[in-house]
C-alpha cells in the first residue's frame, strides 16, 4: 500500500529557508522596517503567536513548502503521524471513519494548522486530511521539531508551551464534562438517555438489513 503522505505529495523542491533567502532583504525588528507579511501570517496563528520575528525565521528554515492538488489525500487515518501543516492558502477537509462511513468533522482554511499533536505525541493519525481545493502549506516534520528542541531553541519551547496549553485544555474540558454530567444527575439522566437512544438508532439505520438486530 502506498503512503499518501509521501507519494501523493507534490514537492516544489523548495524549502521555506530557500524561499526566505530569495526574498528581498528585510530588517527584522528595526524601527523603520515594514511589518513582514510572512511573519505577520505566522504570528497571527495562535500556535506561533509567542514567537518573535527572528524565531519565526528560525522556524521557517526547517519548514518545507508543499502544494497539494484538489482531492489529494494528505494525511491518512491510522498512518504514523510525523508532521504538521500550516495552511497558507487553500481548503482542507478532515474526516474520520465511522460505522456508517466517513464523517466530515472539519473544514480548514488559510492560517489553520493540522496535525500539530504529531510534534509531541506521535502515534497514528486520528483523522484523514484531504485537499478540497489546491492548497499551499508549510510542513514541519516532527523530527525537525525534535532537533530544534535538542538545540534548546526558544522557538521550539514557545510552540511546546502552546501545545501544552492545548493538552491541558483538553484534560480540563474532558474532566469538566464528566463533572457536569454527574453533578446534576437528575437533570442529566433524561438527556443522556435520549442521546444514547439516538445514537443506537443511527447505528441500527446504518447497518445493512441482514446485520440489523
Amino acid at each position: 500500500m502506498s503512503d499518501p503522505e509521501k507519494k501523493d505529495r507534490i514537492p516544489l523542491h523548495q524549502s521555506a529557508g530557500a524561499m526566505l533567502a530569495s526574498r528581498p532583504r528585510m530588517e527584522i525588528g528595526g524601527a523603520e522596517a515594514a511589518p513582514d507579511p510572512l511573519i505577520q501570517f505566522f504570528t497571527s496563528i495562535p500556535l506561533f503567536s509567542l514567537l518573535t520575528a527572528d524565531e519565526v525565521l528560525h522556524l521557517l528554515r526547517v519548514c518545507s513548502i508543499e502544494t497539494y492538488k484538489a482531492g489529494q489525500t494528505i494525511f491518512e487515518e491510522g498512518r504514523a503521524a510525523d508532521s504538521m501543516l500550516i495552511i497558507e492558502r487553500g481548503e482542507l477537509e478532515v474526516t474520520v471513519r465511522g460505522t456508517a462511513g466517513d464523517v466530515v468533522v472539519a473544514h480548514l482554511g488559510d492560517g489553520s494548522v493540522v496535525g500539530e499533536m504529531a510534534l509531541i505525541v506521535g502515534g497514528p493519525r486520528t483523522a484523514t486530511v484531504s485537499a478540497v481545493t489546491e492548497t499551499r502549506a508549510y510542513r514541519l516534520d516532527g523530527r525537525d521539531f525534535e532537533n530544534l528542541r535538542q538545540q534548546q531553541s526558544v522557538a521550539a519551547y514557545k510552540i511546546l508551551r502552546k501545545l501544552l496549553e492545548t493538552l491541558g485544555e483538553r484534560a480540563h474540558n474532558g474532566a469538566q464534562r464528566i463533572q457536569d454530567l454527574f453533578d446534576r444527575p437528575a437533570d442529566n439522566a433524561p438527556h443522556f438517555e435520549r442521546t444514547c437512544r439516538d445514537l443506537l438508532d443511527r447505528i441500527q439505520r446504518a447497518l445493512p438489513p441482514d446485520e440489523a438486530p
Binding site: 509531541i120 505525541v121 501544552l164 493538552l167 491541558g168 483538553r170 484534560a171 474532558g174 474532566a175 464528566i178
Partner: peptide, 9 residues
C-alpha cells in the same frame, strides 16, 4: 500532560 489527557479520555 499526555498521561493526564489519556487518563481523562
Amino acid at each position: 500532560y499526555v498521561q493526564d489527557v489519556q487518563s481523562v479520555n
